[in-house]
């Protein structure tokens, strides 16, 4: 029987490109993304990734992002 470990992923929000629409925060099932306290140059509170949360690189956040501001990484060589 093969045991599939949950994919380990990571997201990076390009702070200065985010317009704070919060769609990624709303749709992330693992609460990886949240509203940042800080402002970006455009005056928005950008989304930011909570490093401690369990991102599975499902890519929903990058799908709903209107600004192409989220990069999704995953651990390609996860064990089977």
């Amino acid at each position: 029987m093969t045991v599939k470990t949950a994919r380990k992923g990571r997201v990076v929000v390009k702070k200065e490109m985010c317009k704070g629409c919060m769609l990624c925060v709303e749709y992330c099932r693992r609460n990886v993304l949240r509203v940042s306290e800080s402002f970006n140059k455009m005056g928005y509170h950008p989304a930011e990734a909570d490093e401690s949360a369990e991102c599975t690189a499902c890519m929903v956040c990058s799908l709903v992002c209107p600004e192409v501001a989220i990069e999704v990484y995953d651990d390609e060589d996860r064990s089977e």
Partner: peptide
């Protein structure tokens, strides 16, 4: 970690559009 969604080739690199937040 490998980047899964590289910047689309036919989208001007790192452009910030004038569209409103959440615009389709």
């Amino acid at each position: 970690m490998k980047l899964k969604n590289k910047w689309p080739k036919y989208y001007k690199k790192d452009v910030i559009t004038h569209y409103c937040p959440g615009c389709g």
